[in-house]
């Protein structure tokens, strides 16, 4: 058994888990953070994307023990209380989700994408950056639209702050 302690959504958590426990299993089972989903066995669908130390990773492809000592953000930690993150808001306003299953991973991937590219995102880049996130409902049309809208809003807010 591994003793695991990490910061999740700003809260220090610790627990015991088998060494083979995946980060996604630790989040879902030990911490009851069921917003992070598992949609495949081959590290391709991206439903499990969370941020570890500020970077998007697939929590199905990382042991919980590997993440021990790290800071993890999941979909549950993205909003600031009742105030949605601009990416969450954009997905809502642009109908960027249907069944909602891929959505947490999509949103976490989008936040990471926007952070890396700043306001400098176009449709082709967004589509290429979504390589690791599969959606079966939306045809991606409104996901792309949502991410571009959020990028514009975040970029605009940054500009205004500068």
């Amino acid at each position: 058994m591994a003793s695991i302690s990490m910061t999740v959504n700003g809260r220090t958590v610790s627990g015991e888990a088998e060494d083979r426990t995946l980060l996604v299993e630790f989040l879902r089972s030990n911490l009851a953070l069921t917003g992070t989903h598992v949609g495949c066995d081959t590290s391709q669908c991206g439903a499990c994307v969370v941020h570890v130390d500020g970077k998007a990773v697939k929590s199905c492809t990382m042991l919980a023990a590997q993440a021990s000592g790290s800071s993890v953000t999941t979909i549950e930690g993205l909003a600031n209380g009742d105030v949605l993150h601009p990416v969450q808001k954009a997905f809502h306003e642009n109908h960027g989700l249907q069944c909602g299953f891929c959505t947490p991973g999509m949103i976490m991937a989008a936040v990471d994408m926007i952070e890396r590219h700043g306001g400098d995102l176009d449709e082709a880049t967004v589509r290429s950056e979504l390589e690791g996130n599969i959606c079966r409902c939306t045809g991606y049309h409104n996901i792309v639209k949502s991410i571009l809208a959020a990028a514009a809003e975040i970029g605009g807010a940054r500009q205004a702050a500068e």
């Binding site: 069921t34 917003g35 549950e76 909003a79 997905f91 809502h92 989700l97 299953f101």
Partner: peptide
């Protein structure tokens, strides 16, 4: 109209069978 059900899905509060 933007969807009423979105909030739970975009905040990770959807409740699927495995949950």
């Amino acid at each position: 109209v933007a969807r009423k059900e979105d909030r739970r899905f975009i905040t990770g509060k959807g409740r699927y069978t495995d949950d």
